[in-house]
Amino acid sequence: MGIAARVERFVAMGTRIELHVFGVGSEDALVAARRAIEGVDDALTIHRPSPTTALNDELLAGHSVAIDDPVLAEALIAIDAAHALTEGLFDPAADRRFAGAGWGDLVFDRSSARIAATRPLALDFGGFGKGFALDRACAALRDAGVVCACLSAGESSIAVIGEHPLGGGWPFAIPDPSRTDAVLVEVELVDEALSISTTVGAGTQAPERAAMIRPTDGGIVTAARCTVAIDRTGGAAEAMSTALLVADAARARRLLDAAPAQRFLYDLSKAAARTDDTARMQAA
């Protein structure tokens, strides 16, 4: 007898979401997971009125704000942790309009859920939102009894629950975004999340996609890079892949050495070289 499988496909977070559930789990598991993702989208989007745009209005006006949206509050806590994890390289407050502004200009009191800015700035959660949404969806699925699932937010953000339906890790191959016939790395996930960030490839040309800002100087990242990060949570994986994309050599080295089997950085400017030579491609 085959393994029962269910799938939910929809558009949210500005991308295509796919939720694949295998085996046990309550009937409403997928609906709950979808609602969780849509709830994150509603809370974190800056493309329509949301708790985040309301927060940004207040921060730009120099006001201290009490966060009353629980999803936004949870996201800010996760971002605070991710900012520290990435040596400050993941910074949703980095903004070319306000050169030098960053997360360090915010005072965030987790206990009271109050946040204030010492200078005008605004938050843009970018890809972090997708990973964070997958985390919330995974939590909803687990609450619904799901033990085996694969979730995708636009293919560059993946989260899995448990092992592959046929046992062992979930095997994924990360293609070279600049060469469709080449693979950068193959990884296996179990109860983990994966994030891929790149400055090249078709996806980077999407009209609504914002430029990647380097928080250290507010410049736009133009180096041809692709980064891959694996973590227990999607939010952390997203933050790390973003950080690796903007990191200078020294910071990149430190971040990669801290988890060499879970963090990868590829310099795609050497396009003539074989891209499956991952040892050479990884940043020195």
Partner: peptide, 14 residues
């Protein structure tokens, strides 16, 4: 059947 899943390709194409 279990095999590697190629993932990470852009889902938005102009």
């Amino acid at each position: 059947h279990k095999r590697t899943v190629p993932i990470g390709g852009a889902t938005w194409f102009p």
